[in-house]
Simulated assay, not measured.
Amino acid sequence: MAVVGAVLLGTAIPLPASAQPAYPVADPDPFYLAPADLGTLAPGEVVRTRRIDTWMYADTDGWQLAFRSTNSTGNPILAVTTVLLPRGVAHPPLVSYQAIVNSLGTKCAPSRSLFNLELQESPGLYLALERGWAVSVPDHLGPTGAYGAARLGGMITLDGVRAVQRVAELGLADSPVALAGYSGGGMASAWAAALAPSYAPELDLAAVVAGGVPADLEQMAEGLGFDPHPGFGLAFAAAIGLEREYPHRFPVSSQLNATGLWLRDWVANECRRFLLFHGAFRSAGQLAASTTLSTSATAHQVLRENSLRYFRDTPTAPLYLWHGTLDGLTPYDSVAEVVHRYCAAGARLTFVPYEISEHMTTAVVGFPEAYEYVAARLRGEPAPIRC
C-alpha cells in the first residue's frame, strides 16, 4: 500500500490509454461469463453450476457455482465459489473459507488456484474437511481481481453462502454456516461479519473466525513509507486492485512514470510469488511521476471505506479474532480498536492476541484454536466473550 501515499494526486483530468486501469485478462472459460440479464437477479442467485474433479482433495466431491453479487459501487457482478463436500457425511456444516489471494490475475482466483498449485494454503482446507465440514472457497476479489477491495470481499463472501444454500444438489440449505480466513481472507471474513446484518440479514452465521485482519488500509499505506521494502510488490498490487474497483476515485495509473506503468502491466495478470519477487525492494519513489504525498480526500476515503476501523456497524454473529501483537505487516492497534468498539457494543466476541511478530506464523498458531471455536458453535454451545 505504500505506493498509495506517493502516487495519488486525485486530479480529475482525461486519462491517456496508458493511464487507464490495468484490468486482468478475462478467464476464457465461458463459465465465468456474466449473462446479459445479470442485473435482474438478486444477490446470491445462482447463474450456473458444474461438477468438478477434486483430484487434489481426497474423498471429496466438488462443485463450482457462478452467482450474482455486487461490487463496491452497487453494480451487479458475476462471482464464483468452489465447494468441496466430504464423502460419506450427510448434511455437513458449511464453512466458507476465504483464502489469502494476494494476487491480480484470474489464474490466481481460488477457483483456479485450488488446483494449479498457486494457493499455498490449500493443505489447510483439510483441517475443516477432516472434521466432516463442507468447505466453500469464494473468489472474493471478484472478476477484476480487485485486490485490496475489502468491502467487495465481504459481499461476495455472503453472496457465496447464499448461492451454496440455493443449490439443492449440495444438500446444504439447512446446514449451520461458519466463515473463516486469515490475513486477506480474514479481512473478507471480518467484513462479511460486519456487513451481514445489513447486506444479508437472513443468513444465520453460527461463527466467524478471522486472524491477522488488515483493519486500516490507510494506516498500512502510510506506515510502509517511501523507502525500498521487501513486500513492496504486494503494496503496489493492492493499489492496482483498488484502482480496478474505484477507477475514478483512485486513479493510480495516471500518476505512474514509465517504469511504474511497465511494472503495472508486467504484474497485472500475476499471482503472489511473482508479485513479491518482481516488486521486492522497489519503492514508490521509483515508480511515481511525483513523490508528493496525496492530499486527495477522495483517495483517502476509498481507503477508509475498506477499513474496518472506520465501519461503524457491529457484527451480530459469534466472532473470534486473533492477531500478533508485534505484527509489522498488519498493525495490531487498529484491530485492537475495532475489538474495543465491538465489545462496547455488546458483540459476542473472543479476541486472542499472540506475542508473535511474523505475520504468517500467527496463522499457523491460531487456526487450531479458531476451529475449536467453530466446532463448539456448531455443537450449539453458547459463544464466550473474551474481550
Score class of each variant (00 low, 15 high):
G260Q: 11
S122V: 15
V89N: 09
D37I: 11
T361E: 08
L114N: 00
T11K: 07
N102Y: 07
L125Q: 07
P143H: 11
A345D: 15
P353C: 04
R112L: 06
A206D: 04
N116W: 11
R377A: 07
N257P: 01
V339C: 02
A17C: 05
L349A: 04
N75W: 09
G142N: 09
H359E: 05
E270F: 03
A66W: 02
T362G: 03
A237R: 02
T259L: 15
M187A: 15
G346W: 13
P214Q: 07
V95F: 08
G181Y: 02
G124T: 03
A163H: 03
R386F: 06
F232G: 02
K107Q: 14
N75H: 14
L158D: 04
V4D: 06
V161I: 15
D216F: 00
A36D: 13
G10P: 04
L33V: 13
A194M: 08
D139N: 10
A235I: 07
A370H: 04
T81S: 06
I356D: 09
L263K: 02
Y147P: 02
F274S: 01
P382I: 10
V3D: 00
T70H: 05
Y332R: 01
A268H: 13
D265T: 09
S18R: 12
K107C: 00
P93F: 00
R68A: 15
T54G: 06
T157N: 08
P123C: 11
V25P: 01
D159V: 05
V167C: 08
F250N: 05
A178C: 01
V101C: 00
C271L: 12
L293R: 14
V7G: 14
R131A: 01
L256V: 13
H229Q: 12
A345L: 07
A36N: 09
T314G: 03
A134D: 07
G74M: 12
P30T: 12
Y182R: 04
I385G: 06
T81L: 05
D227H: 11
I356W: 02
V335Y: 01
F115A: 13
M187L: 13
D61T: 14
Y354M: 12
D265V: 06
L125I: 13
A347V: 11
P228H: 06
T292K: 14
W55N: 09
M155P: 03
R50S: 07
D204N: 15
H229R: 13
Q255A: 15
L275Q: 01
P318E: 03
V7Y: 02
H323E: 08
A173K: 13
A268F: 04
F236P: 05
P138K: 00
R282E: 10
A280K: 13
P228T: 09
L263N: 02
A128K: 11
E355F: 05
F67E: 09
P384G: 06
T292H: 10
T49I: 14
L158W: 03
N257E: 03
T314H: 01
H229T: 04
L319R: 02
S283G: 10
S254P: 02
A128L: 15
G5Q: 11
S290K: 08
P86W: 05
W266A: 09
W262C: 00
G260K: 01
R166C: 04
S254W: 02
P93Y: 00
G211R: 02
A99V: 15
G148C: 10
E369I: 05
G142M: 10
G181W: 03
T316P: 04
G231S: 12
